[in-house]
Design a protein around this nucleic acid. Structure first.
Length: 132
RNA sequence: AUCUGUGAUGGAUCUAUCGCUCUCAAUUCAUUGAGGGAGGAAAGUCCGGACAGCGUAGAGUACCGCACCAUCUAACAGAUGGGCUUUGCUUUCAGCAGGGACAGACAGUGUCACAGAAACUAUACCGUCUCGCCGAAGGGUGGGAUAAGGGUGAAAACGUGCGGUAAGAGCGCACGCAUGGUCAGGGUAACCGGUCAUGGGAUAAACCUUGCGGGCUGAAAUGCCAUGUACACUCCAAUCUCGUCAGGCAUUCGUGCAUGAUAAGCCCGGCUGCUCGCCGGCGUGUACCAACAGUUGGAGGGGGUAGGCAGAUAGAGCUAUAGUAGCAAUGCUAUGGCCCAGAUAAAUGAUAGGUGUUCCUGAUUCAUUAGGAAUGACAGAAUCCGGCUUAUACAUCACAGAUGCAC
RNA sequence: GGUCCCGUAGUACAACGGAUAGUAUGAAGGUUUCCGGAACCUUAGAUUGGGGUUCGAUCCCCCACGGGACUA
């Protein structure tokens, strides 16, 4: 049975790991989101296969309420799509992911979810090309 | 009745599924069950505290803040009540509704553009009065007195009236205003009232003076923790090389053993920026002492990256009832009840459906029903409280204004 | 989280509490030229918003808004 969880173990929370992610990671953009990823070379035992972080620019959303709203919508969209991604990478590799909201105005949940799913699909295609 | 403005109050709710976070319980250690989970401003950071670190030997000065009085309060630049003053209205010896950074301008200094004679030691422009000279006269000219009138200005040397005078002038008197003194007066006090004296332009949100208050820094403060890696330092063992202060004791003359010092001055740091004064320094310095150092292994051990725990959520706590002090703000007492967010790249969300509310359309029995739409504003805890300020869809209430209708 | 500073024409800067807020550049129009440039002439254009002190505020004080710097 698929589980749509997104607990603390599946989020990226260490300042160091985040810095490395943005320093060394690759990225692609599908409006209004931008996806950053990096393969974790030496994962600690018991770590989740995908670890995620979410970010919204303070410049584009000066009010804290709007930033919270955008993050929550992205989290919800990712949470519902996650099990498919895990089944396709099949537990062989470990990845750190970052989702950044680059749009300048708040959209509704359905469009955000769609663009996240497109971004993730493109990412999977890229990975398959690299492995070949 | 509608609209607008101001103020106050509230700022929908229930169920299901999938999630997030905290607490408790259970255990197969990864899950299950139960319960809690944003605001009136959580915001701005404008004030005041609690709490913590540093300091604690203080004094003076500087700097900053406050400024009618009393009360409330943990405290405040907040609140309540009072005084004085000011604006508007009603139409008067007052009432109602607002506003007031509301100590001091005889302690001193500065500034007061333009206009005006003059902006504070009155250089008298037009005038008024008087004396001398000239002239027949109107008048002219020179000296003196005069701040009542004119004009200027934001402001003109206390105001108005009467007396007085050559003309005038607080020169005198009455009333009023301001300031200062005073009273066995009223009031806790500001202040009010009486009385005496003086008459002094404005400006302290110009410098300043007086009184009162303030040690500095803020939770990213501060205290603590265990593991791994590398390292300053200390001890022990092994190994290798180099070297052996002074006097004393012992001596197998190879050597072994114990002992030996830190003054003044200067510099730096701290106590509030400065001064005095004080404290500290494994700084310098002269002086003194004398044996180590490297490598390897073991033990101890300090600082510190990232991380974790405490600080940090039971309190100036919330709430109900009764009594009680006070005009009120606000306390006090008694008896119950409650535990009410604690995240840390930072939790409170998504979807679906109902109830309620508002709006639109239709129907009629005129306050009900059917269908559709919306459920919105300002806005997200970050150590915690008390205020202030600012933002706020919609609903309700109060007040004010405008328009329309009826009487 | 804390501390501090600034806001003037489109832009960069001035202005002791006192004329109609000034200078440069840019903008618009004109003169000159066959056309353009340069030059010359002319014009428009601003004190972040609100309140207070003052006879009078860009300047002094308070509140708000916007922008920036420092600290860790």
């Amino acid at each position: 049975m698929k589980r749509f969880t997104l607990s603390k173990q599946e989020r990226l929370s260490s300042r160091k790991e985040i810095e490395i992610l943005f320093l060394e990671g690759q990225s692609l953009t599908k409006y209004p989101v931008r996806l950053v990823w990096r393969e974790a070379i030496c994962p600690t035992p018991g770590e989740a296969p995908l670890r995620m972080m979410f970010s919204v620019s303070k410049k584009k959303f000066p009010k804290a309420v709007d930033r919270n709203r955008a993050k929550r919508l992205m989290k919800e969209g990712y949470r519902l799509l996650k099990p498919e991604i895990i089944s396709t990478i099949a537990g062989q590799k470990y990845f750190h992911l970052g989702l950044i909201y680059t749009g300048s105005e708040l959209l509704d949940f359905v469009t955000i979810q769609k663009s996240i799913s497109i971004a993730l699909e493109r990412w999977m295609q890229k990975l398959q090309q690299e492995t070949r």
